[in-house]
């Protein structure tokens, strides 16, 4: 099953309550507030544990999300753009997290740079509808994915370290 550290991370993220998707108008606004609260708490937890690894923001409708995630390997920080849409069937189905910059560079991705999730993700998500939100998808999906794939991509020379350029904030 899911490893202990992921379990621990997961359990420290607040659970959501409102079962609403982007077509649910007002209830969706409640859900979005919960999403942001859980995300804020998760980032605070990460900072406290000296493991700050992503930033996310959404458009006004809360259906388009974008941001950055990073991974430290041999003391070098590798940064990636992150994006996803909230599907109409959310939160019954999880968002499909994508790293478009790595599209085509690894077999552990679907089209458009959507990351390939482990067999544990879907059952765990399904059992936790509607309590799991975007923060949980990050912790359970993207976190472990980066930990496995990025070192491998670096070793294969597919991604190389880049000094921060001026345009990066």
């Amino acid at each position: 099953m899911v490893d202990e550290s992921t379990k621990k991370t997961l359990s420290s993220i607040p659970l959501l309550q409102t079962k609403a998707g982007p077509r649910d108008k007002e209830l969706w606004v409640n859900r979005l507030k919960e999403e942001y609260q859980a995300l804020i708490k998760y980032v605070q937890n990460n900072k406290a544990a000296d493991n700050d690894w992503f930033r996310l923001e959404s458009d006004k409708t809360g259906t388009k999300w974008f941001g950055k995630c990073w991974y430290v390997h041999n003391l070098l920080k590798y940064e990636f753009d992150l994006e996803f849409d909230i599907p109409v069937t959310y939160p019954t189905t999880a968002p499909e997290l994508a790293l478009p910059g790595l599209d085509g560079k690894t077999a552990k991705m679907y089209r458009g740079g959507k990351i390939c999730l482990t067999d544990h993700f879907k059952p765990l998500w399904a059992r936790n509808v509607p309590r799991f939100g975007i923060a949980h998808a990050m912790a359970l999906g993207l976190g472990p994915w980066l930990a496995v794939e990025i070192p491998e991509l670096i070793e294969r020379g597919v991604i190389t370290y880049q000094e921060k350029s001026e345009e990066a904030k």
Partner: peptide
Amino acid sequence: PESSTGGAVAASELSLEELM
């Protein structure tokens, strides 16, 4: 729920814009 020490999100005083 799956065991959680994080509790559930409480209703926020803040607006969506403020949370964003």
